[in-house]
């Protein structure tokens, strides 16, 4: 700002902000449509990101625990269980815990929504089980252990819980890639939408821009109100996206919690955190600013 100095800086920004707000309010229908488009474009990757972030936190919690569940055949009795217990003592794979079939049924009865199911059963369909906490041993060792358990008498089924944790990990990696691609795609769309909105505004104000430049307006001065407009529109679109994401999170929270509880997983989906909310609005503003910047720059280069 060599020419006008700092004294001229703030009034110009204030004027540019006012003009941006005025333009947003002057055509409410257009503004609303733009916000819906921008909001929808931001909501999809934002929702994916928020969800993924929660799942990642959850996966981090469980990944350290390597459990092997050893289920006995349903017709196996106390002797068979004792046999397995003694073999476990010999193999010494880590901590283990015996879950008697009666205990398993009781915990099923206490699970919300499952009490009726449990009550309707003529006899207990659940087997005795051992839950082996194998510690952090590496996947190959665990798989070998699981194979050994499977070969023992009266063992019906062996489940390696690290398998699903690894599956979750792989799923999360694919999910992260998908969200990134989606985010890039929709970021491009948002920039394009803003670019076009601004292009139309520039055309409507071609006379003002021409005259302003002829009487000493810098490129920065011409750009400023459009940049504020783009950023404001993007931020408002971000807020709209945020309300969509929070709404989705809220709607999904209760059923998802119940579903996951059935698997014995304590996980709450829910909405975005405060930093995430700020990031969504901030990214909306930044992309809107970028779209405006590109639009005005192309126009200024064209008119020379």
């Amino acid at each position: 700002m060599s020419g006008s100095g700092m004294s001229g800086f703030f009034p110009q920004h204030y004027a540019a902000q006012k003009s941006a707000v005025r333009r947003l309010l002057s055509s409410p229908l257009n503004t609303l449509l733009s916000l819906v488009v921008i909001g929808a474009a931001l909501a999809l990757p934002a929702a994916g990101w928020v969800m993924l972030d929660k799942l990642q936190g959850f996966a981090g919690q469980v990944s350290g625990v390597q459990q092997i569940s050893v289920f006995m055949a349903t017709d196996a009795g106390k002797e068979e269980a004792a046999e397995i217990e003694s073999r476990l003592r010999q193999a010494n794979p880590g901590q283990w815990r015996f879950v008697a079939r009666e205990e398993a049924l009781k915990s099923l009865e206490e699970t919300e929504g499952m009490a009726d199911v449990a009550a309707g059963l003529a006899k207990n369909p659940l087997p005795d089980a051992f839950v082996v906490e194998a510690g952090d041993r590496g996947p190959e060792t665990l798989e070998k252990l699981a194979e050994t358990f499977k070969s023992w008498p009266a063992v019906a089924h062996v489940q390696l819980d690290s398998a699903w944790s690894r599956r979750l990990d792989a799923f999360l990696r694919i999910g992260a890639l998908a969200v990134s691609l989606l985010a890039a795609l929709f970021a491009g769309a948002l920039v394009a939408v803003t670019f076009n909105t601004i292009r139309l505004q520039i055309l409507a104000q071609a006379a003002e821009i021409e005259v302003s430049r002829l009487i000493g307006a810098t490129d920065a001065f011409i750009r400023r109100p459009f940049q504020y407009f783009g950023a404001l529109q993007g931020a408002l679109g971000g807020l709209f996206a945020l309300s969509l994401v929070a709404g989705i999170g809220l709607a999904l929270a209760a059923p998802a919690r119940e579903l996951l509880a059935l698997y014995g997983v304590a996980f709450t989906p829910g909405g975005p955190t405060l930093p995430q909310a700020a990031a969504i609005v901030g990214v909306g503003a930044a992309l809107g600013w970028l779209g405006a910047q590109i639009s005005v720059s192309i126009y200024l280069r064209r008119v020379g």
Binding site: S4, G8, P11, Q12, E208, E210, L214, I215, G216
Partner: peptide, 23 residues
Amino acid sequence: KLLFDRSVLDNVLLPLSIVGLPA
């Protein structure tokens, strides 16, 4: 090159807003 979408006063204010003079 007058601007016909604004008042006489606003036309004259344009160069001053460009240099950032307080209102």
